[in-house]
Write a protein that binds this DNA or RNA. Structure first.
Lengths: 237, 237
DNA sequence: ACCTGAACACCGTTCAAGT
DNA sequence: ACCTGAACACCGTTCAAGT
């Protein structure tokens, strides 16, 4: 829900009242930006719209963020924070722990798809990223992998989760009618592939899961975890 | 290398000669757009710059593409085409075949990172995509998976490759100094993590592979393939 | 110290007028 | 049928002037 600054039904030419000192801060700006992008997408995130949402002058935001890119980085870090909000207990089952953090990241990205789609392109080293790194590295060590291989598997698992979740977010961020058109393409075009040129795809097209089926991400995560477990077993055996 | 339209050293105010009829076509425009983005990044792809590269009026492009989004879709399809350029032989080793197509896509994305980073967000069903789908589905069937599971594994493997390669492209697309700063962050900040709060990450940080190490993608692909093989073996056994 | 108003540069898109 | 010139709307950013 996007609220106007004052809510009073003044004529559009009327001056907005000056905001009190210090009422504008990075957290409030990030929260407002998230409301704007959740409601209207990344394309609607302009300084004009953000100022309206905050009840502040559009350029007042430059007091707290050097430019739009710095604001976007803050928004992506906010998503990392939200992924950890429910808490991430470490149990005695490293596989379940990996599934838990993957699901938490995927959930946060789909809750704010306009921002989630931006994350893979931005590897900002911020406070809330460190916690995720620690959690995944811990899982890889408990799996029984030697240090160098645990580090390599951490990097691969973390980047796989970020990039796949970001792609799912990009699909979810499309305007509803555009997204439906994409999904329809798969349902229609792919089921009409000529059997002579595309025999395998034509034969299996009825089984293709929908692009936005959450089972896709879950299966990808499971495959990754099984492969890590197999490597750990090979080291131990 | 970005060439000017005519190459003649005319003064900037001089009118450019009218282009002959039909000399402008989608292929020429896509090729010119790829030259611009390869040399100066996605931010430099404006109608103004593209017109300059083509020696044509900026708005002449609207004759062949409805808007900028349609041009970008054509560019992403061009990357799919390029990934298949070397030819994709089907051998009797489905694992090697999956590695081959994954590497071909990764290579094409990194050859044109500014466009590669856009692909995961755009699931355009175009001619050159169908070929990739057929190839991967064929591998999954030869692995011995039953139809429904082969279809699910195709979807997951294809989207995993696209999203991971797109993320690698996004890093490669950064301006050199920005990219170096990102990589330095990992080399410096992560090796100074406080041991009390981040014991596992601090212990393994010296082993973290570089973000732009091509071995990361190769390892991710291998893990996926091993997991698919294990599932196929479980079905057979 | 912080906020506001105005101006500037840039870019996608449209369209009537040309050839 | 195709291309060109000009105009329009929009947006990020800067900065001098206000409180």
């Amino acid at each position: 829900m996007v609220t106007t600054g004052t809510g009073s039904g003044v004529t559009s030419g009327r001056r907005r009242p000056r905001r009190p000192r210090g009422s504008l801060n990075p957290e409030a700006i990030v929260a407002a930006a998230l409301r704007v992008t959740d409601a209207e997408g990344i394309g609607a995130l302009t300084f004009e719209a953000l100022g309206r949402e905050l009840g502040a002058h559009p350029t007042a935001i430059y007091r707290h963020f050097r430019d739009k890119d710095e604001l976007l980085r803050a928004l992506t870090d906010r998503l990392n924070e939200e992924a950890q909000l429910d808490g991430l207990p470490t149990t005695d089952d490293w596989r379940a722990d990996l599934r838990r953090i993957a699901a938490a990241i995927h959930r946060a990205f789909l809750a704010h798809p306009a921002i989630g789609q931006l994350v893979p392109a931005r590897t900002a080293a911020r406070e809330h990223e460190f916690v995720t790194v620690e959690y995944i590295v811990s899982c890889m060590r408990r799996a029984g992998l030697p240090d160098a291989e645990a580090a390599a598997c951490y990097r691969v698992f973390a980047d796989f989760v970020l990039s796949y979740a970001g792609m799912d977010a990009a699909l979810a961020a499309l305007a509803p009618q555009t997204r439906e058109a994409e999904l329809l393409t798969w349902d229609v075009d792919y089921r009409r592939l000529p059997t002579d040129r595309f025999p395998h795809a034509a034969a299996l097209s009825v089984h293709f899961p929908r692009l936005d089926d959450p089972a896709n991400f879950a299966l990808a995560v499971d495959l990754m975890i099984e492969a890590v477990a197999a490597r750990a077993a090979a080291r131990a055996g």
